[in-house]
Design a protein around this nucleic acid. Structure first.
Lengths: 120, 120
DNA sequence: TTAAAACCTCACGTTGATGTCAGAGGCAAG
DNA sequence: CTTGCCTCTGACATCAACGTGAGGTTTTAA
């Protein structure tokens, strides 16, 4: 498939896909005329990339990780890196929970007094 | 207290504190010579701001929220906004959990086969 | 009193993941 | 064969939350 197809299937912009390639996250073959061609597997690859981005990993970190995923093997260094990221995510989850609860407190504190009298 | 004191107490840079003021998040009085002066309460205010930043809220959003916190009252609009942010945070927590588990899968998948043979 | 340390206001620099635009070539349909 | 959409490669623009440095004043401690 071509880049536009992959873009619509993953809901990721064409620009972003080219960026992923530039960062070494996503490979493509080229047609004779130079257009990018992707396998169906690219859809899942892009989804994985998005997930890792969503978890706060940088392109550089993801680029270091993906070879492990592909080879299904990790070096001690990359395992350490993976574990460090996991821990960071756990910390972030904990912080988010605190923030969410804090936000709920605010919502409650500002709503409770007199619900029918909230103009101010 | 002066800005340096607040900075060291909150571990937030002086530049950041000035930025918060610029964004309307943090108020200060001024000495005769123009230096910023803060109440003790500013420490908690900064912590709250940090927490909300940590939860992914933007300066603009926080600026809309803080008056509610101060007045302990929210308008229907701001309550809606608060709830929307809370939901967004919940979504993000869910995504992070998925990503973390995914990362764990990767760790396991790349570690298990033969732990003593991980050179590649 | 004098020198270091803190503070002030601009104002430009940084970083990462894109957006966007320009100029040019490619491809299926009528 | 041409119209219209897709793709290509640059390359500059964006946005947020600061960092950083210049040039100048203020406070503090010796």
């Amino acid at each position: 498939m071509r880049i536009g197809d992959l873009a619509s299937m993953t809901r990721v912009s064409v620009r972003a896909l080219r960026y992923y390639e530039e960062q070494g996250l996503l490979a493509s073959t080229r047609s004779e005329s130079g257009q990018r061609l992707y396998e169906n597997a690219a859809v899942n690859r892009v989804r994985l990339i998005q997930q890792l981005y969503g978890a706060g990993l940088s392109s550089k970190t993801i680029a270091e990780l993906l070879p492990c995923v592909d080879a299904k093997v990790s070096t001690p260094e990359s395992r350490e890196r993976l574990a460090a990221e996991r821990d960071r995510i756990n910390t972030q989850i904990a912080e988010l929970i605190i923030a969410r609860d804090r936000l709920n407190d605010i919502i409650n504190a500002t709503s409770r007094p007199s619900p029918e009298c909230d103009y101010v």
